[in-house]
Design a protein around this nucleic acid. Sequence first.
DNA 1: TGATACCTGAGACAAAAGTCACAAAATAAA
DNA 2: TTTATTTTGTGACTTTTGTCTCAGGTATCA
Lengths: 192, 192
Amino acid sequence: MTCSSDTLLYKQLKHHHNISNKSIEKVLGIAQQKKYAKGAVVLKEGQICKNILFVEKGYLKSSYNKDGVIINLNFSFEGEFATNLKSLRSQLGSDIVIQAGEDALIYQFDKTQLIDLYEYSPEITFFGREVLEQILMAQEEHSNLFKLYSATERYHYIAKHHPQYLQRISLTQLASYLGLSRETLTRIRKKN
Amino acid sequence: MTCSSDTLLYKQLKHHHNISNKSIEKVLGIAQQKKYAKGAVVLKEGQICKNILFVEKGYLKSSYNKDGVIINLNFSFEGEFATNLKSLRSQLGSDIVIQAGEDALIYQFDKTQLIDLYEYSPEITFFGREVLEQILMAQEEHSNLFKLYSATERYHYIAKHHPQYLQRISLTQLASYLGLSRETLTRIRKKN
DNA sequence: TGATACCTGAGACAAAAGTCACAAAATAAA
DNA sequence: TTTATTTTGTGACTTTTGTCTCAGGTATCA
């Protein structure tokens, strides 16, 4: 087994997704442990995404390069899943980059291997759908930030619902995620 | 049959989704035809969404009421599908409103009935996934408008990729969709 | 430890967008 | 057609946000 029972991954499978020990063993059996140093690239631009990533430690950052300007699209912290759904589905080259925001410990699942496991038990199928949903919900949350809120409201939303972002993500990176300049974010913070 | 073979729905099933006549008959068998006058509400705020909607004629508008200000989130034109995925999945009350933007002819599919058909043929299962994907891709496109583009760029993107929006959607409604004030949109248009 | 790169705060100014008020134009209703 | 209602265009002004610049702080690494 590539992943022992004192990991976050194991705990999530057991307690959050309520999967039986037999099925957990199958899932852990295809999980590949990877370590990335801060800043290391997990998915390159143009590369075809074949994996679903589970963050055991550290965090992952998804970003898009728009004419040389890096725009942060997503952060995935401990216990969350990350991937590029578009590239994963279409098997076309990725237009986004995924990299480690801190030194990170990642379990990666090969998409094909995971789908093969779906035949083994409906629990695993259900788990697969939950992973997909988690990723979609995170995307929708970020997208609503922009559609419904002003810059100041976006910051306060994050401060309230994701306080760990403020502690672990640098001001510059967070500004890019919130769609505003670093200076504007500084000003918003000062107004408290 | 509630839907004849000279409809857009029939043509889409046959030519776009490549479904066999037998399966098409099944799908059309559960399609309910509905007519809505311009402005009529298809899905109310708080109502649980049970249907997937196909636009045969006219268009549908999804909007969110933020403290009395209406924010347009989506438009679905002829040949496109619409629903509130969140409410459809969770069976919780909808936080968005769907209504007709013009006099509209809609075919609606009950989610449960459609899922029951999945057992009849894998073609229909595949069709169901394509519908889901179409809705998700439309959402992602709109969300990227905000994450990646400025107000002026958003307008030009729509002018290029969805010119019918400019012809059929009023300036006021389009401004709300693009996340800017009506006056700003007027000014952007003048600069051509 | 010192050198280097990166991150943050702050001020001055420019650009973009919002708000308000009112007139003109287009639609819908009588 | 005439009237009423809604939609759009425009200018003046305010607010918000971006850009540029520089200084100080912090982390990193050989």
